[in-house]
Nucleic acid binder design. Sequence first.
DNA 1: GCTCATTGTGATACATGGTATTACAATGAG
DNA 2: CTCATTGTAATACCATGTATCACAATGAGC
Lengths: 144, 144
Amino acid sequence: MQFSFRMPVAVQILLCIAKFDGVFKMTSTFLASSVNVNPVIIRKTLGQLKAAGLVEVAAGVGGAKLLRPPQDITLREVFQAVEEDVDLFHIQENPNPQCPVGRNIQQVLGARLSVVKDNMLADFARVTLADLLADIDSAEQKHC
Amino acid sequence: MQFSFRMPVAVQILLCIAKFDGVFKMTSTFLASSVNVNPVIIRKTLGQLKAAGLVEVAAGVGGAKLLRPPQDITLREVFQAVEEDVDLFHIQENPNPQCPVGRNIQQVLGARLSVVKDNMLADFARVTLADLLADIDSAEQKHC
DNA sequence: GCTCATTGTGATACATGGTATTACAATGAG
DNA sequence: CTCATTGTAATACCATGTATCACAATGAGC
């Protein structure tokens, strides 16, 4: 099991916008060449980020901008913008009610797993785009 | 994105074995009727649990047993027994090396996400089969 | 040694979801 | 009005998860 590309793609889009705002126009074609995916994927992802209130996209003329400063945007928001909010885990829906394990598994295991999911979201909430931009800058310096 | 049924199914199998050991013979057909999936799914899952050293399965005559007490088996082991150990997250493999974001995204975001994954596994490691058995018993008492 | 319920496993089928791509109407600055 | 661009529908393809059938191998008990 793996998460899809979507969240990493969304993060890369947002980082590019943050880093190149005012320098280049952030069109879906430009972003597509940084991420190396099809421009339509970028446009769909930008649509989700727009719906989440993270960016604005200029229809017609093109170009995307952040609506909030990078230090105010967390991975949690990005994740929730692009991933369906279904349960992360998936417990068999029709266990046997005759069996004491079957008739309680959903409640018992579900409670444990929802803690795990909450912790994951809390971890995401601790990382901002500004953190990642700083990480990138320090990685760049090491290369030079 | 969702995890598959596999881990919850494996947990339910192990709980049934723990609860009914010595009372019923734990064949794949019996377990399939508690979990309500095809017996072949049970046999495949038991095969993974056997490979992980959690259970033994009597070929021929049938029946599965735990190889360790429930308080020594954590959700982490169960999870890792049945889920491929690929990266939980999936970062675009060929970002544009010309772009400062593209050429660092894997390292930078990958480092952050591997922390999230480690935390998730640590959460799993804190829950044992014995905990779940106790949860089930207390849920059963409330129903009576 | 035979029987028979059971396991282990390969093959197949099907549904779902992610990704890539084409096409085109709608948009809006210049 | 023009034209680069966005938004979106349609389509295709592949990978993965799940269900199911079939059958050889197993091994306890008679």
